[in-house]
């Protein structure tokens, strides 16, 4: 338990650095550090599937973020300091934390979950499906429809990214076009 709190404090420090620093490369690296902290938490919360997925997705999102920012403009300079937005943000943060503190008294305490359906899945997963990994049995046998919905969401978001990034018209990208751009080889 003490170990969890140490990692969470490390993540809070990483978040504050990612928000406030002016150099964009430092901000992106701080986000990467927070992601690795989350993956370490997942490993100690006995969820190895999620830890693998979090590390891999975090590496790919670092690559995408670095391509977006540091190629073109490395400094985040604010010309005027907008005080009203800062104050509204901090007031909201305080109210949100107070509300969370009052409402978390109703939750089940940390470490004793309310596993009504979970007990059934753990006890009869091997008998019903024949799989040894209970998480795979849940996402591909008991709740396969949700996996179909998730595949559709990824498909649609990547399709949207393509529509935005495509050049005008429908001409094929030829070698001359790629030569004109001069991407660093």
């Amino acid at each position: 338990m003490f170990f969890f709190k140490i990692i969470m404090v490390f993540m809070i420090i990483g978040t504050i650095i990612a928000i406030e620093t002016r150099n964009m490369l430092s901000a992106v690296i701080a986000v990467g550090a927070v992601g690795f902290g989350v993956s370490l938490m997942f490993l100690y919360l006995q969820a190895p599937d999620i830890a693998i997925t979090q590390v891999i997705v975090e590496v790919l999102s670092l690559i995408i973020l670095i391509r977006t920012t540091t190629y073109v403009d490395n400094e985040a300079i604010e010309k005027r300091i907008d005080n009203l937005a800062n104050i509204i943000g901090l007031v909201f943060l305080g109210l949100f934390l107070a509300f969370c503190y009052w409402s978390f008294a109703e939750l089940t305490p940390f470490g004793s979950p309310l596993m009504r359906v979970g007990e059934y899945y753990l006890a009869s997963g091997l008998g019903d499906t024949g799989a040894a990994n209970m998480v795979a049995a849940v996402i591909l046998d008991y709740r396969a429809y949700d996996t179909l919905g998730e595949a559709i969401v990824i498909f649609t978001s990547i399709l949207g990214a393509f529509v935005i990034l495509r050049t005008r018209g429908r001409k094929k990208i030829t070698e001359e076009d790629l030569e004109k751009v001069g991407i660093p080889e």
């Binding site: 995408i64 391509r67 990214a161 393509f162 050049t167 991407i183």
Partner: peptide, 17 residues
């Protein structure tokens, strides 16, 4: 395949215009 395709799109397509 879809994540590799979006990486191609971000690095090559985005600069032609």
């Amino acid at each position: 395949a879809c994540l590799y395709a979006v990486f191609i799109g971000l690095s090559i397509y985005g600069r032609l215009v």
